[in-house]
Design a protein around this nucleic acid. Structure first.
Length: 204
DNA sequence: GTTCTAGAAC
DNA sequence: GTTCTAGAAC
């Protein structure tokens, strides 16, 4: 017998079913169109574009991209140090403007899913309905997330970025662990309940 | 990157 | 029984 299909919508549906604009090319090229999307683009200067992450994983989550097309971290050379310093400086100013008392991190995914080099600016509350799975969590709270300052330091010291790619697969599959107190949590819902107990304010 | 959903886990 | 995860998507 055919039962009525359930209209199952998440209670926190803010992350679901965004208006599907026509995307050209593979999904991994999505940042290219996001850069020009007035809904997402919040600022730009002569060197970079700043957009909101389309699926923010925290209260504040932005992406900063160079206007010149840099594919990934491996493409970086000493010539890019000034550009990356500019990106980090702009990112920190944006964080301060967004909420001066909130903790933020500034960095890059070791193996990003999306093409075009982009620095994440993300508040450390990780309070968002778009944060849904282990990969999301571990990509921002393990060494998979590489601080901008570390990237710049490597470029200055060695002229390129070297990352131990053999460890990344394992990092994303690690057990869920609170980034503040290191407590292990069994599930994503339990983790999300737990991390609400911490303060992410710089002032205490 | 996301959506969808089978079946594991409880 | 429901909750939750993890893999396919041509």
């Amino acid at each position: 017998m055919a039962t009525k299909s359930v209209q199952k919508r998440e209670a926190d549906g803010k992350c679901d079913a965004p208006p599907q604009k026509k995307q050209f090319g593979h999904w991994s090229q999505g940042l290219k169109s996001s850069m020009d999307d007035p809904e997402l683009r919040i600022d730009a200067d002569e060197k970079i574009v700043i957009i909101k992450d389309k699926y923010p994983k925290a209260k504040f989550h932005f992406l900063l991209l160079p206007k010149i097309s840099i594919p990934n971290l491996k493409s970086l050379t000493k010539e890019h140090v000034e550009l990356l310093q500019h990106i980090e400086k702009k990112g920190k100013a944006l964080a301060k403007k967004s909420d001066p008392n909130l903790e933020f991190r500034f960095g890059y995914h070791a193996v990003p899913s999306m093409s075009l080099l982009h620095m994440h600016v993300i508040s450390q509350d990780f309070d968002s309905p778009c944060l849904k799975n282990k990969k999301h969590w571990n990509s921002f709270t393990t060494e998979y997330f590489v601080d901008s300052s570390d990237i710049i330091k490597q470029l200055q010291e060695r002229g390129r970025v070297e990352l131990d790619t053999s460890r990344f697969q394992e990092m994303l599959k690690r057990n869920l662990r609170c980034h503040v107190c290191k407590k292990d949590l069994p599930t994503i819902p339990a983790l999300k309940t737990h991390i609400k107990l911490h303060s992410y304010s710089k002032k205490s």
